[in-house]
Design a protein around this nucleic acid. Structure first.
Length: 400
DNA sequence: GTCCTAGGCGCC
DNA sequence: AAAGGGCGCCTAGGAC
């Protein structure tokens, strides 16, 4: 194993009298900062200790090859321990694995999944793992998700007509936003290649709004996603431009913040109460965190509820029509089903219609978009270029 | 052996 | 001024 040929690791093992365990954060800190002599990046954990997370290791890998080796150990270990070695031993006699979908555990109204196998954290870009979920002979797997669901409902709730226009105009969501916000002198379809950085900026800001993040986080996200340094000042400038264009969204966010701060709770569109007592905390950090949670809850709850209503309505209609189709997973904004081959077309139409139904929270004349995929397994045939060969070994390629 | 926290990381 | 929302599971390490 390459890891154990590093001088620093050998020295650690001699001095500490034990084998280096790369999964131990405490041991890793010693090796990186005491034995290799790297300088901490400044990033700290929640409790104030020196962080060794993926972002830190990526940064440190510019100084020394060891951090990259640790990253590799973590990536492979995650897949091995969490997925591969979990699935086979937990199979029932019918070769299926059964999990829990918890209906009342989350504050937003989303389901959660737990037990033998968390069905809501299957690696999205790993076709090997995803292809383990197979339809039986004569059946297909149908997966449908709501396109940019939370931004759609942010547009509905805020009543921001400019933001709603992004959905009525069709086209790639983040490209359209970038095109509008930065007044890009090209067609929307050209944004993806001509104005990559602007699109990434728009995307990061959109996500940032849903989560309540600021310019610092936006700058970090864009820098990481683009591989190009993107300054705090640039991020702030872009955020300002964003809110200039979507000023109704801005005022809605502000009014929700004020309501939450004044009342210590909020209600989602369909009437789910979210209690937020920490807004009254004297700790400003805790109080502002609570406000971010509250604003996010309104959007997340609505998007989730719409998906759940769509799933229930679909199940009812499927039952009434006597179709051989059943939903076996819900992943927050997606519905995954198993459908008899000859009924897939009919099923997809039912699913789409029931999901896009106007429940009093749609943009007029523009239902939320849905994306459907159909396949023999959950990888939907995305199998190419999973491995590369390195010498006499092989390595998993980075996802997408 | 069980339970807990910390740190990290998979998903939306 | 700054502020990343919601989950569950992995291992390490320590308390009991």
């Amino acid at each position: 194993m390459v890891l154990y040929s590093f001088v620093a690791v050998k020295q650690f093992e001699i001095n500490e009298g034990k084998m280096f365990n790369p999964n131990s954060v405490m041991q890793l800190r010693k090796v990186l900062f005491d034995y290799v002599g790297l300088s901490p990046t400044g990033k700290k954990t929640a409790t104030g200790a020196i962080s060794t997370d993926a972002e830190v290791l990526e940064q440190l890998s510019e100084e020394h090859p060891l951090p990259a080796a640790i990253l590799k150990v973590r990536q492979l270990g995650k897949i091995q321990n969490t997925y591969i070695s979990k699935i086979l031993p937990e199979l029932d006699k019918d070769n299926r694995i059964r999990t829990n979908f918890n209906l009342i555990f989350t504050t937003s109204g989303r389901l959660s999944s737990s037990g033998k196998f968390n069905a809501q954290q299957i690696p999205r870009d790993d076709p090997i793992i995803k292809s383990c979920i197979m339809a039986p002979e004569g059946y297909k797997i149908v997966s449908q998700d709501l396109a940019t669901a939370e931004m759609y409902y942010a547009a509905v709730l805020s009543g921001d007509v400019n933001l709603q226009k992004v959905f009525t105009s069709g086209g790639d969501f983040h490209s359209t936003i970038a095109h509008m916000v930065f007044a890009l002198p090209c067609k929307v379809e050209e944004v993806k290649e001509l104005y990559k950085a602007e699109r990434q900026s728009a995307k990061a800001i959109s996500f940032g709004i849903l989560y309540g993040s600021g310019a610092k986080k936006v700058a970090e996200t864009v820098t990481k996603a683009s591989g190009q340094f993107y300054s705090l000042e640039q991020a702030q400038e872009d955020i300002n431009a964003y809110f200039t264009k979507f000023n109704k969204l801005k005022s809605w966010l502000k009014s929700r913040k004020e309501f939450i701060e004044a009342n210590g709770y909020t209600y989602s569109f369909f009437g789910r109460k979210r209690r937020l007592p920490n807004v009254f905390s004297s700790d400003k950090g805790i109080a502002s965190h609570e406000v971010r949670s509250g604003i996010n809850a309104e959007v997340q709850s609505l998007a989730s509820d719409v998906n759940l209503f769509g799933a229930m309505a679909t199940a009812n209609e499927v039952k009434a029509a006597g179709l051989d189709a059943s939903i076996f997973m819900l992943v927050h904004d997606s519905i995954v089903s198993i459908v008899r081959e000859d009924q897939v077309e009919e099923y997809c139409a039912i699913l789409k219609r029931n999901t896009q139904k106007d429940r009093g929270c749609s943009i007029k004349g523009c239902p939320s978009g849905v994306d459907q995929e159909i396949g023999n397994d959950y990888s939907f045939g995305k199998f190419e270029k999973v491995y590369e060969v390195i010498g006499d070994s092989f390595s998993r390629l980075p996802a997408k």
